[in-house]
């Protein structure tokens, strides 16, 4: 909550909206504004979408339509580590769907969700360009290839351990 009421972020967002609202085509600049929101807050908090609606005079339903249409907008707060499972053709053929199931089970969340300890957010990705080592997943930009269930769980555990040591 403290994050949301952060005045600096709000000021930056409003300055950005003032700037883009000089332009005419409202829908295209709405996407730009939502990107700005995500950049500032990490996701699209409802309160902030309300502010955008009021300031830009766009009904919240329109904003919600756009926000849900594009996969890259996060609608919930995201975790410390973003786990993206590649669902490109090569990975899929090599069993990416099984990897995804393993992750869902291990983390106890669905795609787009974040674990309760805010450690992991699970996402699907289009081809990550690492087809040679399919199936792959990416965590915070780092690629892990030739996955099987055990390897996947091991990697997740490494991140858990790292977080543990961070705290200690």
């Amino acid at each position: 909550m403290t994050q949301i009421v952060n005045e600096d972020k709000k000021n930056e967002l409003y300055a950005f909206m003032d700037e883009v609202s000089q332009e005419r085509r409202s829908n295209s600049y709405l996407i730009a504004v939502l990107h700005k929101v995500q950049q500032l807050y990490g996701y699209l908090p409802q309160e902030v979408m309300d502010q955008v609606a009021e300031k830009m005079e766009i009904p919240t339903s329109h904003i919600w339509g756009v926000a849900t249409f594009y996969h890259y907008f996060n609608l919930k707060p995201i975790g410390k580590n973003i786990v993206s499972v590649c669902m490109g053709t090569a990975c899929y053929v090599k069993g990416a769907d099984k990897m995804l199931l393993t992750l869902k089970k291990e983390l106890g969340i669905e795609i787009g969700e974040t674990t309760e300890d805010k450690l992991f957010t699970l996402q699907e990705a289009r081809c990550l360009g690492a087809c040679g080592i399919a199936p792959v997943m990416m965590i915070n930009g780092k690629i892990y290839g030739e996955l099987d269930s055990k390897k996947t769980v091991d990697i997740i555990n490494q991140y858990r351990k790292a977080a543990q040591t961070d705290i200690e």
Binding site: P59, S61, W64, F69
Partner: peptide
């Protein structure tokens, strides 16, 4: 009134008010 929108996409598309 602009209460409704088609949210999400493809097979997951649902007509709903803002924020579901």
């Amino acid at each position: 009134v602009h209460n409704l929108t088609q949210a999400y996409r493809g097979f997951s598309t649902v007509v709903m008010p803002a924020y579901n």
